[in-house]
Design a protein around this nucleic acid. Sequence first.
DNA 1: CGCCCCTATCGGAGAAGCCGATGGCAGGAT
DNA 2: ATCCTGCCATCGGCTTCTCCGATAGGGGCG
Lengths: 300, 300
Amino acid sequence: MDTRQLRAFLAVVDAGGISAAAEQLGYAQSSVSDQLRTLERDLGTPVLNRTSIGTVPTEAGQRLLPYARRMLDLDGEMRRTVSGKRPLLRIGALQSLADEWLPEMLTAFDHGAAGPETADVTVTVTSRTRLMEELQEGRLDAVFTLDSGPAYDGPTAVVGTDRVVLVTAPSHPLASVHPLTLDDVRATEFMVTEIGCIYRQLFDESGRDLGPSLKIAMITGSLNALRRLTVNGRGAALLPRFSVAAELESGDLVMLDLKQGLAPLTIEARWRDGIGPAAAPLKALVELTQKFSPAAWAMA
Amino acid sequence: MDTRQLRAFLAVVDAGGISAAAEQLGYAQSSVSDQLRTLERDLGTPVLNRTSIGTVPTEAGQRLLPYARRMLDLDGEMRRTVSGKRPLLRIGALQSLADEWLPEMLTAFDHGAAGPETADVTVTVTSRTRLMEELQEGRLDAVFTLDSGPAYDGPTAVVGTDRVVLVTAPSHPLASVHPLTLDDVRATEFMVTEIGCIYRQLFDESGRDLGPSLKIAMITGSLNALRRLTVNGRGAALLPRFSVAAELESGDLVMLDLKQGLAPLTIEARWRDGIGPAAAPLKALVELTQKFSPAAWAMA
DNA sequence: CGCCCCTATCGGAGAAGCCGATGGCAGGAT
DNA sequence: ATCCTGCCATCGGCTTCTCCGATAGGGGCG
């Protein structure tokens, strides 16, 4: 059994075909075909159904899939450990956390704030659903998300608290209304991200308490776009406080004085109890975030 | 990376030399030497220190060792799963449990008493220390031992209770003493296994309550030898009841009527929370033992 | 000092890996 | 219906790897 064959198999399943996989791997198509034949001879069973428009894993192939991944992961971890390199910590996070909160934590971690443990860190940014999948499959060591979301039976810790705040540019009409009433807010048009995005969920949950008459003026594709639109005076938005910390600091955004009805927010870490070399630094990092977060991002 | 190279490496470390490993593997000595060179070139670092009397793993080699084992284990599990075979359940147990208690459990398990889950089972018999090591290293899925022993932070369950009993051959003088007093017992010479053996530990713990004046007449190398010596009228012994169940049944041994001061005994299962195919049948087996044991081996 | 056991190296035979080219096959466009 | 296109398997070749037997070097031990 050679890892090349497993890589080839994964690439083929990933790419949906042998030709595409070959190009991606830098092999000739015939070579990948050979590798698969070798793999199937070795395993004693076909792992791919070939058709004229591509390939689909057989039942045996589907059983092989997770093992191939684990095998390659283990191979990587082995090489890293044997060569004496620092362990690799594979972290996943939502975009906003990766942008605004995680960097401080990782910097502190890098500077030894978590003790003697160090690690090389990769950060994968994707949706919460995919983060949880990758965590379950062992392709990530830990993920950082907002709120609790779907059930997870592994270790979990709240590593920070924040709140959703109502922000506008200083030039926005709402910014100069004092005192601010709920009716003023209800008359404002909001910008939100599209349905399915976790920030839209936060908006919906927060906005529910503001009443049913919230107006939605605009839908943007990303949190970053939404934030920049708000800075440019395009409207108001409900956003996690930490995601606009820099703008609040610089005065590009102002936080409207409306405390009631805005949902509290927790930053949660979820991870896998591993026995690999990443276990110790991971534990240290989680403890670090638990220690740092409350001070830096506590609810006002 | 090829599993052949890992197998070669493990064999060399195991055998203490390249030549011995080559013979064991069925390769020529030069071939194993080649394989190791390939492995070291691939990893970028030497893994063995060669001397004129054999080989010793380098530091990097010691780091490689557990990964090589895990890799080969994973390879085996993969082949088994892909080919659609039943999962493999790797069990470890003390000699006495493997002799007397485990077979009934495994038979019941095989007959479907644990539900639809089935598995091929291997039983490894060795010392409690080694059992725990192998469990920690992931080379065993579950171990069955007596009493609690050293700390283990994984899942644990008491799957049976028993007690230590005082037995002799029917012809032994003590067998005809009625009523039996503690002084009679204290005057008897006991046979025990050597220090370090778990049964010696049991003896020491049980005997403590009988007083300091217990006489030790003979030291044997194994529990089986001790049992047979007892059957042959050589003396008295303190033994777990289940380990002499057959002899008590057939009348080859008699249980002396001395209840006080004999330590209770628990059969414990310890296992790893795994995500592999053996997880489900393992759970079923543990539940089966919990259900069956109290009835079959309850303290009198 | 010679012997013995260990490992590394060498050269050759066989196997495997990789490639480009070719051919078969199925589905969609003309 | 026919061609066209994209897919995969196969073939012949070259290269590389694998394994072997034989040989050489090197350190412990009598």
